[in-house]
Amino acid sequence: MASVNIAGREVELDEDGFMVNPDDWTEDCAKYFASGEGINELNDDHWKVIHYLRDYYKQFQIAPMIRKLCKETGCSLKYIYELFPSGPAKGSCKLAGLPKPTGCV
């Protein structure tokens, strides 16, 4: 496990660069992860997706299904990939500080 300094705070990451503790998340974390996921600048739509993911996770302790994410944010899957080139799991969930998606990937 590595830890990085994000805006003056130590944040622990696993080897895929996901946050070990979702509660440590701040908006600075999203900005920090963005460049590694092929994103130059976070716009309003990025933040909409990120905040949706965080709210959903806070409520249900799980990431939403992709279909739900698209429906609730109004972003098509194609647009999600334009926003987050590495996709909703590796890209947006990482930026939102959610735990690493698991299962038969």
């Binding site: 080897e15 895929d16 996901f18 092929g38 990939y81 080139p85 590495s86 996709g87 909703p88 799991a89 590796k90 990482k94 690493k100 998606p101 698991t102 299962g103 990937v105």
Partner: peptide
């Protein structure tokens, strides 16, 4: 180790970390 999420830009699958 358990799991692993890596990939290539533009795709959501195809690589098993």
């Amino acid at each position: 180790k358990h799991g692993g999420i890596v990939g290539v830009f533009g795709y959501g699958g195809g690589v098993i970390g």
